[in-house]
């Protein structure tokens, strides 16, 4: 009897462990990466940071793009910027959304750290961000040539993350060619 009692702590711990494991499994299934996946990119009509011209959703289409949400106040964006520069050098089309930010500051930033973006949409009020379900910067969306969102990544983009996203992006580019 005593001997069985000694297994009680282990049993309780095992039970807790299993609960955790199962619980996390459920969580993984219900939380979709984003409800926007496989849906068209939200409508927008926004100014461009670099030259002030106005672009709309139609301008996004035609070629697959990484849409990167960033801001000068966001430290992680600073950390991921170098990697974006590399991607741009490899010929990846990156469209920026300058999120809840100041156009002047954004220009200074791009001048200082390099501009990997095809162009940057200025979203000072975060309206487009809200429609994209952005929680905070940085976030990155994979948008195909038809303007459909295919994947989303929250947090900084780095070599590890890109390893997972690249096949999908290449497939999109392949389909276009």
């Amino acid at each position: 009897m005593n001997r069985i009692l000694l297994f009680v702590p282990l049993a309780i711990f095992a039970l807790m462990g299993i609960t955790f494991w199962v619980g996390l499994g459920i969580e993984d299934k219900t939380s979709l990466p984003s409800p926007l996946i496989d849906h068209p990119f939200p409508e927008f009509e926004l100014g461009v940071v670099e030259d002030g011209r106005t672009l709309t959703t139609a301008d996004l289409q035609g070629k697959p793009a990484l849409v990167n949400v960033w801001a000068t106040w966001c430290p992680t964006c600073k950390a991921e910027h170098a990697f974006l520069n590399e991607l741009a050098a490899d010929g990846v089309r990156i469209v920026g959304i300058n999120y809840k930010d100041d156009v002047e500051k954004a220009r200074d930033w791009l001048a200082a750290f390099g501009n990997p973006y095809d162009y940057n949409l200025s979203d000072p009020k975060g309206k487009l961000g809200l429609e994209l379900g952005v929680y905070g910067a940085p976030e990155t969306f994979l948008v195909d040539a038809d303007g459909i969102i295919r994947a989303k990544h929250i947090g900084d983009l780095n070599a590890d993350v890109w390893k997972k996203l690249k096949p999908q992006f290449d497939a999109m580019s392949g389909a276009e060619q």
Binding site: P75, K78, A79, A82, E86, A112, F113
Partner: peptide, 12 residues
């Protein structure tokens, strides 16, 4: 590391 092009300034 962030190589080859490290950021000029840190995020604080």
């Amino acid at each position: 590391r962030h190589l080859p092009s490290p950021p000029m300034e840190g995020g604080d």
